[in-house]
Simulated assay, not measured.
Amino acid sequence: MPFDASEYGRHIPADVYDDAFAHLDPTEAVDRLAALAEGGPVCEFGIGTGRLALPLQERGLTVAGVEGSSEMAGQLHKKTGGDRIQVAIGDFASTRVPGEFSLVLLAFNTIFALPDQAAQVACFRNAAAHLRPGGRFVVEAWVPDPGAFRAGAALRPVRVAQDEVLLEAALLHPAEQRMTTTKVRLTGTGVDLLPANHRYAWPAELDLMAQLGGLVREHRWADWTGRPFADDSRDHVSVYRRPVSA
C-alpha cells in the first residue's frame, strides 16, 4: 500500500478501524491533552474517527482537525457531536485549518504515516504555523526497535482476547527507515486486514525536526501518565512549544 492517507481509509473501513482499536482507553491521553491545551482550541492532525477529538470536545474544548481519508472523517461526523468538528481533508504535512490553536496533536504513531523525512519536517512546520505563541505540538510515537526483527521480519501479538486476536506482521527496510506492516484481526465473524506503511524516526530525529520548525522541546514522557522517559521506554509522548516572542 502506498504512503497515502486516502488509500488507508479505502483499504480499512472506518467501522473496522474503530472495532480493532476499541480496546484502547483514551482517558489518560485526554486528561493530559486537556491540561496541556489550557482551555484553548485544539487541532488534531490525522483526526481519524474521533477517538481523542470527541472526548476532548466533551471536556468543553473547541476541536478541529486534518484528515487524509474522507471515509474516516465521514465516520467521525456520524458520531454524536462529530458534526461540530471542522475537518479539512488533505495531507497534514501541508493542509491548513483556519485560526490559531493552543495545541496541535499528532497521536497514535501517525507522524510515521508520512513518507519521508522531508514530509515529516514539513509537518512540524505546519504544526508551528497553526500554533499561537506559547502553543504546544504533542507527538505520540513508538521508539524504533530494529532488534525486534529477525531476517528483516517480525510477527507479534497486539491483543489476545476471548473474542478477538490482533496480530501485526511487519517487514523492515532499514536503509529507508521504513516498515511495511499489516495488522491481522481474527474474530468469530472472520478476518480483517489493516495494512499500513511507516517511515520511522528516533526521538532525537524528531527533536531536530522540531527545531527546524521553530519549536522547542518542553517535555518527553514514556506515556500519557507522565512517567519518565528512560532507556527501556518503548513509546514516548513528546511536547514541543512555540516560543513566545519577546
Rank of each mutant, 00 (worst) to 15 (best):
H11S: 09
H11Q: 13
V16Y: 07
D18A: 10
D19F: 11
A20Q: 06
F21H: 08
F21T: 04
A34D: 06
A35Q: 15
A35M: 09
T49H: 13
P55L: 01
E58K: 15
E58V: 06
R59Y: 01
L61Q: 03
L61T: 02
T62D: 15
T62Y: 05
T62A: 14
G65N: 01
S70V: 14
A73I: 07
H77V: 09
D83C: 11
D83M: 06
Q86L: 15
F92A: 03
A93D: 07
S94E: 03
S94Y: 01
V97K: 04
L106K: 07
F108E: 12
N109Y: 02
T110A: 11
F112I: 05
F112V: 04
F112L: 04
V121G: 04
A122D: 02
R125V: 00
A128P: 00
H130F: 04
H130D: 04
L131K: 02
R132Q: 10
R132V: 00
P133L: 06
G134M: 07
G135L: 09
F137R: 02
V139W: 03
E140T: 09
W142A: 03
D145Y: 10
R150S: 13
R156C: 05
V158T: 00
R159Y: 14
A161V: 08
V165N: 14
L166Q: 02
E168A: 15
L171A: 12
L171V: 13
H173N: 15
H173F: 12
H173S: 11
R178G: 09
R185T: 00
L193V: 01
L194Q: 01
L194N: 01
P195I: 02
A196T: 06
A201N: 14
A204F: 12
A204L: 13
Q211H: 13
W221S: 09
D223M: 09
G226C: 03
P228T: 01
F229N: 05
D231C: 04
H236S: 12
R241Q: 11
V244E: 13
